[in-house]
């Protein structure tokens, strides 16, 4: 087993393979081929890389036109610009017109850390989740990223994928175990029935580390990797709620409208399960490395363990 990989590198290598076999697959960038790790794609398949310049709205709209004519564009742009500057293009030209465009939000969440709130995308899940006919994904490791890209290359459905910048430690051992289908999450840790940690993307690793610490402290804990933020795995959430009745969600996103909100919405009508949402507070994130910022907001494994312990002792 390797030590991990960056999602962007995995997407690039997978896409080179897929696009070599299908010339309709295109990578569309907004002067972002470097930050999207697409330089190898540009070298290998220069005719299948469409450069749109620093114009995220037009990148999305042009991609919708390309898709309408049989192309399968993957649009790469920083998640913040792709989902917020271009949100109307995503809503109208992609989701509403039902064009086969895959939106790859790179450097998502707090990835750009000290570059400041202009570059953070801590609202993208809230926005994309509310758009009909748009799937939303957050891969947690290289295997899940690979499986997801393979699925997306065959699917005709509009989708948004949010990835970060850092090396993702491995969570899974094979692509097949990591991602099965839209609306399917994974129960990846199952050691008792006191609490379920629900995470997606980069917080899956943190949830697993926290779970290990909780197990060591005698707490019964499960971990769910949702990966498919929309559609949501309602069955899996119901199953873990049946057993634990205490859910703690963990996300690199505003506490409003993201993963925690999705889980709370899914379980609210049961009336028997508490959902505690851990994420970024309603303020521009403070400066620091991503790890420093996660620690500050209580999103590191030790803080999560301590929050869960407090919740269970109430």
């Amino acid at each position: 087993m390797s030590n991990g990989a960056k999602a962007g590198d995995v997407i690039c290598s997978e896409l080179i393979e897929l696009a070599s076999a299908d010339q309709n697959i295109l990578a569309v960038t907004s002067d972002s081929r470097g930050s999207a790790a697409l330089n190898p794609f540009a070298t290998a398949l220069p005719n299948q890389l469409i450069e749109m310049g620093i114009a995220e709205q037009n990148s999305v709209t042009v991609s919708a036109g390309l898709a309408h004519s049989g192309k399968r564009p993957f649009v790469f742009s920083p998640a913040s610009f792709l989902t917020m500057r271009s949100v109307e293009q995503v809503k109208d030209d992609v989701a509403y017109s039902n064009t086969n465009v895959k939106l790859i939000g790179i450097s998502g969440g707090n990835s750009y850390s000290v570059l400041g709130a202009t570059h953070h995308s801590l609202q993208d899940l809230a926005i994309t989740r509310a758009i009909p006919n748009l799937e939303v994904y957050m891969p947690a490791d290289q295997y899940q990223t690979r499986a997801l890209i393979q699925y997306l290359s065959k699917s005709d459905q509009p989708a948004y994928v949010r990835i970060g910048k850092k090396v993702l430690a491995d969570v899974y051992e094979t692509p097949a175990a990591a991602f099965k289908a839209p609306g399917k999450g994974n129960l990846i840790y199952d050691q008792g029935n006191d609490v379920t940690l629900v995470a997606a993307g980069e917080t899956v690793r943190i949830a697993l580390d926290a779970a290990q610490k909780l197990t060591n402290a005698g707490v019964g804990v499960k971990v769910v990797d949702l990966v498919s933020v929309k559609p949501l795995d309602q069955d899996l959430l119901n199953r873990v709620a049946d057993q634990t009745h205490q859910i703690v969600t963990l996300e690199e996103h505003s506490i409003y409208g993201g993963l925690g909100s999705a889980v709370a919405e899914a379980l609210a009508q049961r009336g028997d399960t508490a959902v505690h949402i851990l994420g970024f507070p309603d303020e521009p994130a403070i400066a620091g490395t991503q790890d420093e910022v996660f620690g500050y907001y209580g999103l590191d494994a030790d803080s999560v363990k301590s929050t869960v312990t407090t919740l269970l002792n109430k």
Binding site: I50, Q57, N58, T61, V62, S63, A64, G65, L66, A67, H68, S69, Q89, D93
Partner: peptide
Amino acid sequence: GLSVGIAL
């Protein structure tokens, strides 16, 4: 923009 995509 849609037409640019179709033309491209």
